[in-house]
Amino acid sequence: MNIKDYIESGILEQYLLGELSPIEEKEVEKLMAQHPEIRQEYFTLADTFEKLSLQTGVEPPGELKDMIMESVGGAKPSRTQSTQDNSSRPTNNLIFFAGIVAIISMLIAAGVAYMCKQSKTELSSQISNQLSQIETLNNDKLLLTARVNQLAEDLRVMGSPEYNQVNLKGLPLAPQAFAQVFWNQSNREVYLKADHLPEPAVGKQYQLWAIVNNAPVSMGVFDLPTSNQLLKMNTVANAAAFAITLEPQGGVESPTLEAMFVIGNVVSG
C-alpha cells in the first residue's frame, strides 16, 4: 500500500470527523498501528483540528458552566446559605399560626404558578416539535425533488437522439466491467454512466479519456457514483473512442495503458 496516497486520500480527516463506519474505523486503526507515518499524520491532523477549534471558539454565557457543574453534583456557585436559627421560637401562638398560614398560601400560589408555567412550556414545546417535524418533512421533500429532477435529467440525456451512446466494454483486466458514455456532438457535452466498474483501490481514481486524432485527451477523474446517477464529464468536440483507466488519486496527464478497464468506439450515426 502506498502510505502517501492513503494519507492524501483524506480518510484520516473523515476518521477524525467521525464519518466512517465502525468497520472502516477499525481498518484505519489497524493501519495506524502498523504504520508510524499514518499515526504521526493523524496526530498532526488532530492537533490542527484542536488549534482550529480553539481559534474559532465562541465564549458561552457564564450560567452554562454553573448548570453543568450543578448537574454533576458539584459545588453550586456562591449562594447565600440560609442559616437555621431554632433558638427564637415564636412566643405568641397566633403569630406562629399566621406565619404557617402565610407560608402555606405562598406555597399554594407558587404551585399554581408553576403548574401554569409548566403547561404553557409543554404546549410550546409540543408546537415546536410539530414545527420541526414539518421542517423535517419539507427537507425530505426537497431531497426527493432534487433526486427526481436528477433522474429526469439523466433519463432525458439517455433517451435523447442528440446524445450518441457509446458502450465501453470490459478489457481482460476486468471482463465484467461496463460503462456508457452519452456524448452530444453538437454541444460537446459528455455524460458517463459508470455503475458497473469495480470498486477502486484506496488512493486510486478512475479517469475517463477520449481518443481525439489518435491521442488520448483527459475527460476528468471520477469516483463511482453513490446513486447510479450520470456523471457530467469534460466536453469534447470530436472523439473516435472513449476509455477508462485507473490512475493515482487526482489523475494523470497520459493514461496508464496497462490499467485500462473499458474501451468503446464511437459509432457515428
Binding site: 477549534s53 480553539l54 474559532t56 471558539g57 458561552p60 458552566k65 458539584g74
Partner: peptide, 13 residues
Amino acid sequence: LSDLYDHYAAAFY
C-alpha cells in the same frame, strides 16, 4: 471537569 470546561467550552460552543 471545571478546568476542562474553561479550556474547551468555547471551542465546542
